[in-house]
Design a binder for these strands. Structure first.
Length: 99
DNA sequence: GTGGTGACGGGCC
DNA sequence: AGGCCCGCCACCA
């Protein structure tokens, strides 16, 4: 377990209810500006173990970035259930819900 | 060792 | 907004 990984886990767990943060943003806060892809990996491999709010993570353009449609739909639902507005095509107003 | 692969980002148009 | 391209980097077959 690297220092970066631990930082990422903590940061993600600290994202407040009803708001979102981008992969790259998390990577920077964790100390690695180019670690966005690692953040993705961590999400994939540790979401269950550490009970992470993976649905609050979107890409820098403010859009749900999951390629798998079924999972993307789940993320949309989870966000909406937290009061976050998500457009039909998966976009979220960063200036309003961003962190 | 090695090449292909993303739940990415930034720049450009 | 949305598409394309290129740089990045840990993983995995």
């Amino acid at each position: 377990m690297t220092q970066f990984t631990e930082e990422v886990l903590v940061i993600i767990q600290r994202i407040p209810y009803g708001s979102v943060m981008s992969y790259g943003r998390i990577a920077r806060l964790a100390g690695n500006a180019r670690g966005a892809r690692q953040v993705v990996r961590i999400l994939h491999s540790m979401t269950e173990k550490y009970n992470l709010p993976w649905h609050r993570i979107i890409n820098s353009k403010g859009k749900i970035s999951i390629t798998d449609e079924s999972y993307a739909a789940i993320q949309r639902e989870l966000l909406i259930s937290e009061g976050v507005e998500v457009s039909e095509n998966g976009y979220i107003d960063i200036s309003k819900y961003g962190t």
